[in-house]
Design a protein around this nucleic acid. Structure first.
Lengths: 208, 208
DNA sequence: TAGATTGTTAATCGATTAACAATC
DNA sequence: TAGATTGTTAATCGATTAACAATC
């Protein structure tokens, strides 16, 4: 479980470090340094050393870090050295793309149940899973003891779906709906909205 | 042309304010307050007032903000009150989902050209567009004067594609590849990687 | 007027960076 | 040893919050 005092902003950088280390390991680099990692990520070497220091001492002075060792430590710290199951609500185009997203499997995240409220979709198969009626959401989350939920429904239904997930035991939500979810602070939410990203970038673009 | 002194972290919140205001407007709310917006977004009212103050005075003491007026002002500030064209590289499953993403159209973002390096895909139609050979990338960006690029290729090719985009005139990149792009500071990058979000949330989950 | 809420200032809080002793 | 790089401290920088005069 989560050491308690690392700031969230630090935790959110750890997956980037892990990704860079995985890439180095695949290229058979055995040793790296805070400077090299920083150059890969556009982050200062001091920040990387400071961030890692919240969790332990992983390097050797004068030498740097052993790539496979630091990678494994980050996997342990982030708890990604295990299998996580997820439920997905929303079997539209977006849900379909999510259910088939190869990156999830590769990192041990698996969608184990898909839900929709459209009677025409319920019973159909999507990504190897039979689409269930969203009425069975709570029951399924409880019986499968799932902790992670993915919201891929239209904005109008997202808050209600998220609240139901939380009441049934979900503690982390990946939110693809274009709305800010209002949930208890103990529930983690990560929002994916490409339009929000585009809009903040548009601010900086020159009209030619 | 972007006023120059608002911190980027503030600019990144403006789309959230715009989204909330759009929702209020659709519900025919004519007036709102920093407190109401804050409650919707999980942000303090002081922060909302402070953020808006970088760009002007939009409210009335004792009254709050007129929803349509503030919404329109944010659209102007963010430059989302116009049509933006985008190029997309990568015509795989992910590219397909992106090209068909309804949210882009709704907000004035349009994919005008799709590229792939697979000869079998070039010439096929995806989302109403004929897939072009990625060899034509620079030429197309220049002749269409596009400023926004979407990278939806595997990690191994992403950095090279992004660099080519930038040399041809792209100034904002939406990056779906699971890698940190290294680009000149004048180029904006917004990364979309659901796995990174899941991994940072996993840190906080209790193993039962 | 009385009540409410803005816009802004100053205080607080937290994150990043610079610097360097420790040491491989 | 000489050179390099960590882990950590203190200084700096920047963001958030609290408070309130202005005023609708």
């Amino acid at each position: 479980m989560a050491s308690t005092d690392a700031p969230e902003i630090v935790v959110r950088r750890l997956p980037l470090y892990l990704r860079a280390l995985t890439r180095l390991a695949e290229a058979n680099h055995l040793i790296t340094s805070s400077q090299e990692l920083g150059a890969m990520l556009g982050i200062s070497s001091a920040q990387i050393r400071k961030d890692l220091s919240y969790f332990g001492e992983f390097g050797k002075q004068g030498m740097g870090y052993e790539v496979p060792y630091l990678r494994d430590q980050l996997r342990r710290i982030l708890q990604v050295d295990r299998h996580w199951e997820m439920v997905l609500v929303g079997a539209g185009d977006l849900g379909h793309a999510i259910a088939n997203h190869a990156g999830f499997d590769r990192w041990g995240y698996q969608v184990v149940a898909v839900f929709d409220n459209d009677p025409h979709k319920v019973g159909q198969v999507m990504g190897g899973l039979t689409i269930r009626d969203v009425a069975e959401l709570e029951e399924t989350i409880r019986s499968l003891r799932v902790r992670i939920g993915i919201v891929a429904v239209p904005a109008a239904g997202a808050q209600a779906v998220a609240e139901r997930m939380v009441l049934a035991g979900i503690r982390a939500i990946l939110n693809y709906a274009p709305i800010s979810l209002n949930l208890p602070p103990e529930v983690r939410v990560h929002a994916i909205d490409p339009v929000v990203g585009l809009q903040s970038m548009s601010y900086y673009l020159d009209l030619e």
